[in-house]
Nucleic acid binder design. Structure first.
Lengths: 212, 212
DNA sequence: GCCTGTTTTAAACATTCGTTTAAAACGATA
DNA sequence: TATCGTTTTAAACGAATGTTTAAAACAGGC
C-alpha cells in the first residue's frame, strides 16, 4: 500500500498534495508530515523542492511519453504501409489515453492526472518547463502526423488546434475530480476515461473541420 | 497614459504584473514599486491583496459579462422570433469575443486576457472563486442556449463540451503572448482576435458533432 | 564489538510575505 | 491662516517558507 522507504513515501505524499493544493501551496512541511518523515529528508534525498517536483512529474511522465511515442510511430508506420492517411481520432486517442495507464495498477496514481492539469498552466517557469520539456518531442511528432492526416488544413491552423486540444485536456484533467459550474442534475464522472471518451470525438471534429 | 491617482496606478500595475508573473508570485512590494506608491497603499485602498485581485478582475469582467449576457439574450430572442435554432458559431462568438472589448480602447488592457487565462486554473480557491463567481451565470445561460441549439446532443455531453471550450479558451488566452511548443517556422499571432478566429470554427465543429 | 558510510533527527537560519502602526504630509474648507 | 478629514510614508511585526547544520541513530562488514 504505502511505500516502504523514505524516498518513495515522499514521492507519494507529494503527488497527493500537489494534486490537491497545487505546487506552491504545498510546503515541504506538509509533505514530510503526510509522509511521516523528517523535514530535512526532502533536501537530503532530492536536493530541493524543485527537484522533488521534477521527480514527481518524471516518474510517471517518462513511461507515459514512451508509450505515446511508440504508439504514434505505429500509427504512422501503418499509415505508410497501407498508403492511407492516419485516422485523426486514433492519433488523439494514442496521445491522450496513455495518461490513464497508471489508473489500473495504482490507486495512488489517480492524483497524477490532476498534476498534469496543474503543471501546464503553472505560472512558475521552472515548474512549467519541467512538463514542457517532457511534452515537447511528443507535441512536435503529433503535429507532424496531423499534417499527414489533414493535408488540407494549414500548418498554422493545425498548430493552434493542437493547442486548443492541449488546453481542453489539461483543463478537464485538472477539474475532473471537482468540476466547476456543474449543474445540480449532473454528477461528476466516476472515472476519467469516460470524460476522454467525450473529449476525443469533440477534438476530432474540430481538427477535421475544413478551413474556408 | 498612466493613471493619475494612487488607486488606478495600483490597479494597472497589478494587472500588468499578475498577467506576467501570476497572482501568487507577484508581491505587494513588486506592485507598489511598479506603481510608484507606498507599500501600505494597497491595504489602505483595497484592504487586502485578495481584495485587490478581486478588483483587478471585476473592473473588466463585469462589463465583459454584461455585454455577453446582453448579446446572448439577443441571440435567444431572435431564435424565438424566427422559430429557428440559434447558431452555435454565433453563440460561441458572442461568448468569447467580448473578452477583447478593451483592446481597442486601452493598450494596457492587453494584459487582462492573460489574467483571465491565469485565474481559471488558479490553485488558490479564493482567487479562482472570484472568476468563477463572475462566470457562473453566463456559463449556465450559455449551456441552456446550447441545449436549444443542439437538442440531439445529450445534456451531459454538452456540459463537458462546454468545459472543453473553456479549457481551450483559457489555455490560449494565457499562452498567446508566449506560445509553447511554437515551431521555428511559425511566429506568435500579433493580435489575439485572429486566434479566436481559429478557435470558433474548431469549437463549433466539436459542439455540433453527432453523438452515436 | 568496533568502525565507516548512510540516513534520520531537531534545531536554527535567512528570506520573504501580507499586514499593521503611528507619525507625517496633504488638501479642502471655514 | 487654522483646522480637520484624508492620504502617504517609513518602520516594524508576526508568520511561513526552503534550506542548512551538526549531532544522533542506524546498518553492514571486518
Amino acid at each position: 500500500m504505502t511505500e516502504r522507504n523514505t524516498k518513495g513515501r515522499i514521492l507519494d505524499a507529494a503527488e497527493r498534495l500537489f494534486a490537491r493544493d497545487g505546487f506552491h501551496a504545498t510546503s515541504l512541511r506538509n509533505i514530510t508530515r503526510e509522509a511521516s518523515v523528517n523535514l530535512a529528508a526532502v533536501n537530503y534525498h532530492f536536493g530541493s523542492k524543485e527537484a522533488l517536483i521534477s521527480e514527481v512529474i518524471s516518474r510517471r511522465m517518462v513511461p507515459i511519453n514512451r508509450m505515446r511515442m511508440g504508439r504514434l510511430r505505429a500509427v504512422m508506420a501503418e499509415s505508410v504501409n497501407q498508403q492511407a492517411r492516419p485516422d485523426v481520432s486514433e492519433i488523439l486517442s494514442v496521445f491522450f489515453r496513455p495518461t490513464l495507464v497508471f489508473l489500473e495498477t495504482s490507486s495512488q496514481a489517480k492524483e497524477f492526472v490532476t498534476i498534469i492539469g496543474r503543471a501546464m498552466p503553472e505560472p512558475d517557469d521552472t515548474v512549467r518547463n519541467i512538463l514542457i520539456g517532457h511534452l515537447e518531442p511528443v507535441f512536435r511528432y503529433l503535429l507532424e502526423i496531423l499534417c499527414f492526416a489533414l493535408p488540407h488544413v494549414p500548418y498554422r491552423v493545425l498548430y493552434w488546434r493542437l493547442q486548443f486540444a492541449l488546453g481542453a485536456f489539461s483543463h478537464v484533467m485538472r477539474t475532473a475530480r471537482d468540476p466547476i459550474f456543474m449543474p445540480d442534475d449532473l454528477k461528476p464522472e466516476e472515472d476519467i476515461g469516460s470524460i476522454i471518451d467525450v473529449l476525443i470525438p469533440f477534438l476530432t471534429a474540430g481538427m477535421e473541420e475544413a478551413v474556408e
